[in-house]
Amino acid sequence: MGIIKVENIKVYAYHGCLKEETKIGSDYRVDLEVKANLKNSAKSDELSDTVDYVFLNRIIKEEMCVPSKLLETVAKRILNRIFTEEKMVQKATVWVSKINPPIGGDVERVTIKMTERRKK
């Protein structure tokens, strides 16, 4: 088993419960960690034998473009797509962070973390 991380993906998106958030948008950071068997790819040196991080990045960017009230909803959509579209992934953890959230204080970011395992 091995780990692939795609870190600090910066996205501008329109998530939130406040009307202003869905109109103005804000900055987000997404981090992803997936676990998969990387032994074959380590031997073969072939992209087809591993989890393509370009593919993972594309899923994140596409799902971040779909407005949602809650970051939890966005995270769950990202995980669902990963498990549906990439059979090699056995476990995935995604962190979705809203940068400078409008919560009436000096807060750098709020982050939700969600982990899923492939159902056998």
Rank of each mutant, 00 (worst) to 15 (best):
I3P: 02
I3C: 11
I4P: 10
K5G: 09
K5C: 11
V6C: 07
E7I: 03
E7R: 12
N8M: 13
N8A: 15
I9D: 10
K10G: 10
K10P: 06
V11L: 02
Y12H: 11
A13W: 09
Y14L: 05
H15M: 01
G16V: 02
L18M: 12
L18K: 12
L18N: 05
L18C: 05
K19F: 13
E20I: 02
E20N: 03
E20F: 03
E21P: 11
K23Q: 15
K23Y: 15
I24G: 14
G25W: 08
S26Q: 12
Y28H: 05
R29Q: 11
D31V: 03
D31M: 01
D31Y: 03
E33Y: 01
V34F: 00
K35V: 13
A36F: 14
A36D: 03
N37Q: 01
N37R: 07
N37A: 08
L38A: 10
K39D: 12
N40Q: 13
S41D: 05
A42S: 13
K43R: 04
S44Q: 05
D45K: 07
D45L: 07
D45I: 08
D45P: 05
V51A: 04
V51Y: 00
D52A: 02
Y53D: 01
V54M: 10
V54E: 15
F55I: 07
L56F: 00
N57S: 15
R58H: 12
K61H: 07
K61R: 14
E62D: 15
E63N: 07
C65M: 14
C65Q: 14
